[in-house]
Amino acid sequence: MDFNQLISIIVSTANFYAIWLILSLSLNYEYGYTGILNFGKVLFFSLGAYSSGFLAANLANIMAGVSFDICSVEAVQLRLDLAKAVPQLPLLVFVASLIMGAALSAAVAYLLYISTSRIKEGFVLGIILLSAGETSRIVVRNYEPVVCGYHGLVGIPNPYTAAGDPTSASFLLSITIWVIAGVAFLFINKLTATPYGRKLKAIRDNELAADIYGKKPSHERRKVLMIGSAMAGVAGVLYAYYLGFVAADDFTSLKTFDIWVAVMLGGVGNHLGAVTGSLVVTLIDRGTRVLRVFLANLSIPLETLYLRWIIVGVLMLLILMYRPAGIIPEKSIKTLGLLRIIERIKREKT
């Protein structure tokens, strides 16, 4: 165990953590603040990933003035060569993908929301989003022009190819992922630590009352779903660039459940909950892999490969049993007025 090994463990864990953090922050914003049951989170995540693959592949073709099939091995080679020849290009495409991923996800969220505006039941909207996610996966899987269908799109170049050697390029990409996750955290904190955030919680807790006070629940929900989806789209772009690869088969509904697990374990309705929840989920994955090999060494006469998942399940249940409101439960909002009232009560008591 040396220093380099430790660093590389931390870096790759942190990369996945940062991407999951953005996803759980956005889901927590949607569910924890307005009660939207987004069971189709993976749809918006995948849209970001598809946009990066689509842009990286087609822009390389346009730049080189060729019309290769984007899925052919020649096109893959071209993408990688072009990145080396014009090192600024991948960074530009990366920025373009971030914008396109966020915009596309928000647009699809908008369309889905307005086409289901008649639906009052949150659960039904959730099931529609779940079905929409599966539908888009199966369509993209069988439709090559987007990201090569079931072949998957290989060879998305690292945005920092200009840095020269692959190690520093990938480290720069990791830093970018962490910075974007940090910005997402600050953004969502800033956004909800205002009267706006309290308005959203009011809508969540009593929609009718909020409506009567003129808070337009449907309008606000639509906005929240669009912002949350744009964030998921950004996470999808980061994911695609981190792997350098996109395939529709990666975006099954099980991913949505994983994000829900992170949010629920962490604690709904507060951002620290999402931060903790996604950390726990990331650590459970890496930790149990290690734990499994450790158990295998104790000569337990069982197939330990599957034990890992059982441990994951038991850990989740333990957290839920002993922290049913999540590891970090939601606290009541302390406004200035409320603090003053509490102060006064305390003074009167003494």
Partner: peptide, 24 residues
């Protein structure tokens, strides 16, 4: 909850330390 999280962290660290030297 704290113990659960610490156990995870400890498992991660422990495994990283002993991981290379053990085998099934």
């Amino acid at each position: 909850a704290a113990v659960a999280v610490i156990m995870l962290l400890a498992g991660l660290g422990l495994g990283a330390l002993v991981g290379p030297s053990i085998s099934p």
